[in-house]
Simulated scan of single mutants.
Amino acid sequence: MSVTVPQTELQPGLSGTRAALRRNFWRGVARVLRRKPSRMVGVAIVALFLLMAAFGPMLYPAHLPRDNNALYAPPSLAHPFGTDFEGTDVLALVVTGARYVILTGLVTAVITVAAGTLLGLLAGFHRGRWDTALMRLTDLQLTIPGLPLLLVLSTVWKFQGPLAMGLVLGLLGWGGIARAVRSQTLSLRERGFIEAARGLGLSTTHIIGRELLPSMAPYIAMNMLIAVTGAIYAQVGLFFLGVLPFDSNNWGVMLNLAVFGGGALTSAAALPYLLAPLLAILLLTLGIVLVVDAMDEIFNPRLREE
Rank of each mutant, 00 (worst) to 15 (best):
F239K: 02
L202M: 15
H206P: 01
A53D: 08
R182Q: 14
T112P: 08
L284F: 15
A53W: 06
T285H: 11
L238Y: 11
V236D: 07
S215N: 14
R22L: 09
T285E: 04
R179L: 08
M1Q: 08
W26T: 07
G175E: 07
R210Q: 14
W157G: 02
I232P: 02
T96G: 01
I194C: 01
A231L: 04
F240T: 09
L290K: 02
A30I: 01
L244R: 04
H63V: 14
G82W: 02
W174M: 06
A270S: 12
T266K: 09
A78N: 15
A62Q: 08
Q184R: 02
R23F: 04
Q160N: 11
E305N: 08
G124T: 03
L284N: 12
S215L: 13
G209E: 04
G170I: 04
A123N: 10
G161Y: 03
L48H: 06
T205I: 10
D296H: 10
M222L: 10
R182P: 11
S187D: 11
L286Q: 05
A269Y: 11
D67A: 03
G287L: 08
T83A: 13
F239T: 07
A62S: 15
P218G: 12
H126E: 05
L265N: 10
L118S: 15
A280C: 07
G16H: 08
D84L: 07
V46D: 01
R189N: 07
S76I: 09
P12H: 13
L151H: 00
S15G: 01
H126R: 15
K158W: 07
A258H: 07
L172W: 09
L50S: 08
S248W: 06
G166I: 02
P277A: 04
D139P: 05
L122K: 05
R129W: 15
R189I: 13
G237L: 08
M222P: 02
S76R: 07
A217C: 03
L167S: 10
M254H: 02
T104G: 10
N68R: 13
S2G: 07
R66C: 05
V253W: 10
Y100L: 11
L153H: 02
E297V: 15
A70K: 14
A196S: 10
